[in-house]
Amino acid sequence: MPAVIVEKDRCKGCTLCVNICPENVLAMSKEINSKGYFFPFMQNPEACTGCRHCALICPDVAIQVEVKGKVNQKPSALTEKPFHYCPGCHHGIVHRLVAEAIDALGIGERAVGVAPVGCSVLAYDYFNVDMHEASHGRAPAVATGIKRGRPNLIVFTYQGDGDLASIGIAETIHAANRGEKITVIFINNAIYGMTGGQMAPTTLVGQVATTCPLGRDPNLAGYPIRVSELLKELKTPAYIARVAVYDAKNILQAKQAIKKAFDYQVKGICYSFVEVLSACPTGWGMNPPDASKWLKENMVPYYPLGEFKTPEKGVVKETER
């Protein structure tokens, strides 16, 4: 019988695993862990099919699943350090996917990451590879310097929406347009998390943030920027995709896209960019399952998912996506 193994002291009680489980195997305990959070346990162990959805969605790499004596391994491109992110934040999921891609391509010893300013400012503590910390918005410029100086390295940036789409939009566009052979992972959660919930360039129309307390007004702040669509119009070859990580199917697609993005760099083909729609339960003022639902219902319609540009096909038509 499959078994869900919970590393309880890594858990932040977000309940995403309980919510995603198709067989209602998991429930939250009445006990608290050393951090003061309730954590999940197998309430109906016999119902578990070993689908691993709980491990896929856990943002804190706190869950492993044993199926037929085999346990899924934590990626070696992640350090052991627990993430500082809020309960239910999608950053942790994307960190794991990036690390899995690095592992899968066997590039851990020549990967160099560039961390941004924003919630993921401490990403350098989590990726088990050489890392730089950049100033706000300048990660693509820093990555350009690294890659041009040492072209054999696999260089990636990991940036949020304020960092990439506001203060760093110039660096973003020009690195893409120069066709820098780097990989950019863009976390779009439509809000400024670290500073406490201010409006981002990607905040949806009508969405409330602390600097648009009445909701984003397009007459004052314009419409949310669709960065993937903006970048796909550049003539320079590139891989541009948008994914989400709110459910198992999308997480697997995101995993594919991120791996592909790194692979294009490994093969020296092109600049690659993956936008990940992410939930910010704290900034949005919702519990984690509701935040995932809100993302699906509100962000996905405005920010359609799929590949926007590939080096083989060029701009991908909407009908092909």
Partner: peptide, 16 residues
Amino acid sequence: GYPITPQNEIPEYMSA
């Protein structure tokens, strides 16, 4: 302005 900790309450206050 532009958000940065620890003064975000100023732009937040001004926006309202």
